[in-house]
Design a binder for these strands. Structure first.
Length: 544
RNA sequence: GCGCCUGUAGCUCAGUUGGAUAGAGCAACUGCCUUCUAAGCAGUGGGCCGGGGGUUCGAAUCCUCCCAGGCGCACCA
């Protein structure tokens, strides 16, 4: 950044050494466009008044055509005010090559894997899954745009007790169709979808299994059931604009020998012991609170066993970073997995776990109870159908993952005409509307001619230009922090500058050059909105 | 009891990784459509940033101790 270089040069000239110069964008417009508190940081070291130091630095910087003025203010801030010439030049550069201007190749092709959703294929997705799905998909979009090589993976728990329980539940419903008296499994899945699957099997295969005990046809029921669920999950996710590169099967982790391989490795490292018939992993040696069972006394592997085998497999694939997006109710798991990664010789720093906090679902202020087992829960599908994909995604993206989220179905619907997502989309639609009119009046809307840009002199226009030019910096910060919600807020702020501008100044006027300049500005706003919304996985409607 | 997350306007939430006088949306109130889309704009009111102590030029932000809420602490997933 230019400002940093200017300050560093000035400091060098003055013979002052400093480790790093901080730069910020002040909240207050009167405090300039860019500001640095460096003089205050230096004050105690130099035993000199901060304002005096600031004056020296400002003096050493001297005049630069990029700035209208550079002033010392407050307790010792140095504030930089960008010049109109600078803003016009930058806007021209942006319009000529928006993608190039926005491009920040911070990833440099580094391989990153994001594992998210990974819902058990034992029932439809609920709203909590939806939140993780949105955070994961947007994070993937962001990192891809920032030059990372991203793989999106869904881990399928197609092995073990839960899918078996689903199979048993379906089997029980199937026997009902055979008109048999049955005892429904104690912890069985009670949702209506279980009966749907049973119906599906009955339609296809008839009474074939009516007299066959579960143990003799369990594979059939289990496989059929979870595969149908997985299909439904994938279908819902696609409609929710969430796409995966790979679905890693837990069964394959077993059948390809990764679990046994991992346990052998741990044994070789003497990190495994037997106690009371079970096999334990010494996770406490790597920071866990207690040792963990990997093979139960009945010979069954725990989920933890396949989970750490899965993470070991991921670690071997050469990703620079492994991102896991988990529901906050799994936070107790983080230490465990991290200790396992450390145990097999990988840097646990490469594993980043983003915990997405709980979603409390409300309807008109009343809590909606959700229990998958009992079968009464609001599915992501229902919410998508009732509220809409764009709105649902946007609501998830207006909170940081750390925040608990209250999702009120009636509120989300009621606000549907004044929802924040529409505020942003409306700005896009309005600009397109202007363009339609402009085309009718003979303007070349996609003109690359920047000779009239300097006609943009209104305060609202300069504010908009600054906001547009700030996009790359904002985006880089969001990528660095891995925080999708920053983009959401930025877009709202950008729209929040555009609407007042639209209201106080006409784009298409009798002054042809001025109109062209304003059209160029509108186009720049549109290009930013389009890119931002695309990253959020939200549509950019040309009409509303 | 231990661990993680949260506590900011009446409600839902931001707050650029420690900066200047703490923001937005919703709700309330007052205005603005003969003009490129009023899903918009202009304006008003609203705060012990949960509380105490500490760190320093400077704290909503960092440390510590309390208080409150949520979620976890299995040979469950």
């Amino acid at each position: 950044m230019i400002v940093k270089d200017l300050i560093n040069n000035a400091l060098k000239e003055l013979g002052i050494e400093v480790s790093s110069v901080e730069i910020e964008v002040p909240r207050e417009e009167g405090h300039g466009d860019i500001s640095t508190p460096v003089a205050m940081v230096l004050a105690s070291k130099l035993k000199k008044a901060p304002r005096a130091i600031a004056e020296d630095i400002a003096g050493a910087i001297g005049n630069d055509p990029s700035f209208e003025k550079i002033e010392v203010a407050g307790p010792g801030f140095i504030n930089f005010f960008l010049s109109g010439t600078y803003l016009h030049n930058e806007l021209s550069a942006f319009i000529k090559d928006a993608d190039g201007y926005v491009k920040r190749d911070v990833g440099r092709g580094e391989k990153v894997q994001i594992e998210f959703v990974s819902a058990n294929p034992t029932g439809p997705l609920h709203l909590g899954h939806g939140r993780g799905a949105v955070v994961g998909s947007v994070l993937a979009n962001m990192l891809t745009a920032a030059g990372y090589n991203v793989e999106k993976e869904f881990y399928v728990n197609d092995s073990g007790r839960q899918v078996r329980l689903l199979g048993e539940s379906v089997y029980a419903r199937y026997l009902e169709l055979c008109n048999k008296e049955i005892k429904f499994p104690d912890d069985g899945y009670k949702g209506e979808y279980v009966s749907d699957i049973a119906n599906n099997i009955f339609d296809k295969e008839g009474k074939k299994y009516c007299d066959i005990p579960f143990d003799e046809c369990s594979d059939n029921f289990i496989d059929h059931s979870y595969k149908l669920m997985l299909e439904e999950i994938e279908r819902d996710l696609k409609e929710f604009s969430v796409f995966f590169d790979s679905f890693q099967s837990e069964r394959d982790i077993f059948s390809e020998g990764h679990v046994d391989g991992l346990i052998d490795l741990l044994k070789k490292k003497d990190l495994v012991y037997e106690d009371e018939g079970a096999t334990w992993f010494r996770s406490t040696e790597f920071g866990d609170d207690k040792d963990r069972v990997i093979i139960k006394s009945d010979g069954q592997y725990t989920y933890f066993a396949s989970d750490i085998a899965y993470h070991y497999l991921k670690a071997q694939k050469g990703f620079g970073e492994l991102i896991n997006i988990w529901g906050a109710d799994h936070h107790g798991y983080v230490k465990r997995v991290r200790s396992a990664i450390k145990a097999v010789g990988f840097d646990p720093g490469h594993l980043k776990v983003i915990l997405v906090q709980m979603v409390s679902l409300l309807r008109s202020g009343e809590p909606v109870q959700m229990s998958k087992r009992a079968g009464n829960f609001v599915t992501l599908r229902e919410v998508m159908d009732e509220i809409g994909v764009d709105t649902t995604r946007f609501i998830f993206l207006t909170r940081k993952p750390d925040s608990h989220l209250e999702f009120d179905l009636e509120e989300a619907k009621k606000q549907s005409s004044e929802n924040p997502v529409f505020y942003v989309q409306y700005a896009f639609a309005r600009i397109n509307s202007i363009f339609r009119k402009a085309s009718d009046e003979g303007f070349n809307v996609n003109s690359q001619d920047d000779s009239v840009i300097n006609r943009l002199t209104e305060p609202e226009e300069l504010r908009l230009i600054k906001k547009i030019l700030y996009y790359p910096m904002m985006f880089e910060g969001a990528v660095f922090a891995r925080e999708p919600h920053r983009i959401t807020y930025y877009l709202q702020e950008l729209a929040g500058l555009f609407h007042p501008y639209y209201n106080s100044h006409r784009v298409l006027t009798d002054d042809r050059d001025l109109s062209l300049a304003r059209l160029a500005l509108c186009r720049a706003v549109m290009l930013v909105l389009e890119r931002g919304l695309a990253i959020l996985g939200i549509t950019s409607p040309e009409r509303m």
